[in-house]
Design a protein around this nucleic acid. Structure first.
Lengths: 223, 223
DNA sequence: CAAATATTCAATTATTCTCTTGAATGAGAC
DNA sequence: GTCTCATTCAAGAGAATAATTGAATATTTG
């Protein structure tokens, strides 16, 4: 709480924001909010926190300007403040991954075929979308798709994929995406599609990063 | 310290790194290290910490992989781990600035003419350097310049600027930079040069960001 | 207006982090 | 080998943070 020196005071502000993301629970809440706006009860349920505790963490996030809230009837709906927050979490992820062996190990065991399924970048996907040489599938559940998705993507939730193979082209590339870098849905989808002979790829990142980059999204129901 | 759930364990790793940058002292140390490699004693002096305390903070930064250390005789020299760290600090700065009024106020009082002196981006500067239509001056002290500077820049420490005006061209743009976004040296230099009728601009960011972006740097003595 | 629901507040306890102090280590100098 | 210097380690007091509980507030519903 010092402040004699303006530079020190500034560092103190930065540090306060950093401390706010210095909690696994709050990071999880932020990840959940990166998908879509959600109520306190929903967030508590998804993260395994009690309602009161989730509320307190959300208020800390709010005080630091990382999330915003609005009232909808008797519920409070929270959402990420903006794309800079997604960028901050991405930077944190990169720094952590590079130097912390433990993360590597978790990644290797959890996302088993991580590196074997080549990913394409946002830039590359955009180029191919403009060319019209690619079909983009969103492997998240229908509700999440409805709340926002890449413009031009079709919703094929992972568990429906086997039933819906005939909607997908065999002569051009299929790119799957889901919630973000640590979401397994698109990995599974790509693995399944490859097994069936499709030219399937995974988008390197997920919906939150796409939206944060200011790239086109839609909020319609199933396209 | 949980770890039953792999996802939770991952968040815990990220949170640990975030907590490490959640301290004004450590952020200041990181900023000092963004300039150049330094010894514990030097860092303690510059940041006003006791040696023992500085050492402990540096070890925390090291455990989180944010800095690296090497021994040189009886001194330990610390340096930033890599450019990702600069990117993380930049992302933290952006998120904080946008939402925390206190930072705005500090900026306005400390960097008084902040917005009145237009800044040019790295990209723009690179373009003009290739064209040869710009002179780049580094306004930091000679020691820092010697430890690393933008390739093609000449060192004109702020306090020497009045004496060295005749080295600078009046017919083409002069771009000044210094330690980073919160360094005042380049602001002062640009203000002085404008007063004298030069076409002077400030580089948006400083040396650490330039180097972190992988752009060309040199380590010679005064060029 | 009273009841029901969703969220927040306030107080408590347990845990973690910070700084200080003085001793211990490692490397070079004599 | 001993001395000196730079850094690190270890222990303890004080401060900040986290999770839990139960009460309080705001909003819709009857």
């Amino acid at each position: 709480m010092s402040s004699q020196n303006p530079k020190r005071a500034m560092f103190e502000q930065f540090a306060a924001v950093a401390r706010t993301i210095g909690s696994a629970h709050r990071l999880e809440l932020l990840e959940l909010l990166a998908q879509t706006e959600r109520s306190v009860e929903e967030l508590a349920g998804l993260s395994g926190l009690t309602i009161a505790n989730a509320s307190q963490h959300l208020q800390q996030l709010r005080r630091s300007g990382l999330v915003e809230a609005r009232r909808d009837g008797k519920r409070m709906l929270y959402r990420l403040a903006d794309g800079d927050v997604v960028a901050l979490l991405g930077a944190l992820r990169r720094v952590t991954e590079r130097n912390v062996g433990a993360v590597e190990k978790v990644l290797n065991s959890y996302f088993r075929e991580r590196d074997s399924l080549e990913a394409i970048s946002r830039k590359e996907l955009l180029r191919r979308m403009r060319e019209g040489t690619v079909t983009v599938i969103d492997t998240r559940p229908a509700e999440e798709f409805a709340a926002g998705h890449l413009r031009g993507a079709i919703n094929v939730p992972l568990h429906e994929i086997k039933r819906r193979l005939r909607e997908l082209p065999r002569d051009q590339a299929v790119v799957a995406y889901c919630r973000g870098t640590y979401c397994v849905l698109s990995y599974e989808a790509v693995a399944e599609l490859r097994k069936r002979g499709f030219k399937a790829f995974r988008l390197e990142e997920g919906y939150p990063e796409w939206r944060a980059a200011g790239l086109p999204v839609d909020h319609s129901a199933t396209a």
